[in-house]
Nucleic acid binder design. Structure first.
Lengths: 143, 143
DNA sequence: GTAAAACTGAAAATGATTATCAATTACAGT
DNA sequence: ACTGTAATTGATAATCATTTTCAGTTTTAC
């Protein structure tokens, strides 16, 4: 059976000797209930609405922990802000990014992944992870 | 016949009404004679050695112009610095990045590019460009 | 309950990049 | 060659996202 992200993070936290705090719970809940691809600032503003006491440094720190624990991944789309997306262990997906409206669409393509492995092998690389982003204009903006 | 990058930039400059200056020539020469994937700061330091008068703001500005003219492309490998690589019109390549030693290997794979176009088409996207980076451990670091 | 260690928020610090501005320079038209 | 205008420059200040610092607070193991 699959562990919930909450569970995974709690396991990670206790294995690292991290303490459980109200703030981290709040941030985790908000992160999990929010859309994908939120920037730190966007998440911070959302959290502020319900829990005005939480400082932005805490949000920054906590998101880094999420990434470390494996339930989230840092992504950058070149707009100068770091975004975090939910990450299910073993899952992977790539992105289509609309340059006009900023829409982000996720996709998976096994064949591409396979070809990537081949390329890496040909060059003697052991792949740890990869990043594939296609930038263009989305359906809505095109019509 | 293929235009040189110098030529391309000069055409771009005159079409935009940009003036030709000593500093830009210096920066262009240094950029063209340097390795790929230099960060703005690295290039700035190299230029400083021979032409101490040039300010870093000018290097930043000029590299942006190179990117605009099409002879260079901005890339980011997640270390917080923007890098610039040489770009031959019509050419494209992707990267293998060693997480241990930072080595960067370029590769091209037409099949992957084709599959990317398919993915984009399936989602109604018109692709403008893309970014593909494979992160891992290189041959040297592995052995 | 207590002490040690982790955590927090606010503010200051950082690092990369961009904007400002007065002085300089390039260049089209004379 | 001269001149006016507009682009360019270097230095500095400003900005933006992110990190660090630090004093006070909270958790948690004992």
């Amino acid at each position: 059976m699959k562990l919930s992200k909450k569970q995974i993070f709690q396991d990670f936290a206790s294995s690292k000797g991290l303490k459980s705090t109200k703030q981290r719970d709040t941030i985790l809940d908000c992160f999990l209930s929010c859309d994908q691809h939120l920037s730190t600032e966007e998440l911070y503003l959302k959290i502020k609405k319900n829990s005005p006491g939480i400082g932005f440094a805490t949000v920054y720190r906590t998101l880094k922990l999420f990434a470390e624990s494996g339930i989230a991944r840092e992504i950058q789309f070149g707009d100068g802000q770091t975004r975090y997306e939910h990450l299910q262990a073993g899952e992977h997906h790539d992105h289509l990014v609309c340059k006009r409206c900023g829409a982000i669409v996720e996709f998976e393509n096994e064949t591409i992944e396979k070809l990537q492995s081949e390329v890496a092998r040909d060059h003697g690389f052991t792949i740890i992870n990869h990043k594939l982003e296609l930038y263009g204009i989305c359906k809505n903006c095109n019509s």
